[in-house]
Design a binder for these strands. Structure first.
Lengths: 82, 82
DNA sequence: GTGTGACTTATAGTCCGTG
DNA sequence: GCACGGACTATAAGTCACA
């Protein structure tokens, strides 16, 4: 179905993942490794091409040392919880 | 893969959905209709049997008139964002 | 180090029921 | 109104070769 809202959400996730990853000086490969996912898969998420599931979301959050809801929040401030 | 973290997340989602739904006096059917999902699917989500995608998460949030990150936050207090 | 299209396999999600 | 199952279809997961 992919409504406009869903598109925005994927986009938000993409931006958050990319920002957090670069914030920690990781490559897509490094994040993929840390999250237990694949390089190209992480890449396609960052390009908001994927409609990821809770499971992948969780893996991603783990790899980025953050919380799942952080990846889906529009966050300008304290994003990195030490 | 379904790590323990992913299990917890599904469980949290299940609780939040059920609580918010009942809070608004909706049946699973009513929510399914409002979210554009299927009756049995909503039921299985509330039983934390499903690893839902962003798209469904968005639809669910829409049907519950809330935000996606609310469904994934451990929320004791102000759940309804004004 | 990243983008992209193609591809296979796993599972998300629908729809039919039953108690 | 809800839990749960079986069978099905659509799509996410996961991997690759190459730009």
């Amino acid at each position: 179905m992919v409504t406009g809202e869903a598109k925005q959400l994927r986009d938000l996730l993409a931006r958050n993942v990319r920002r957090l990853r670069r914030d920690q000086n990781m490559s897509q490969e490094a994040l993929a490794d840390a999250a237990g996912l694949h390089r190209t898969y992480v890449g396609s998420i960052e390009r908001s091409e994927r409609n990821v599931s809770l499971d992948s979301l969780c893996a991603l959050a783990h790899g980025l040392s953050t919380e799942v809801w952080c990846l889906l929040s529009d966050s300008k401030e304290g994003q990195s919880p030490q």
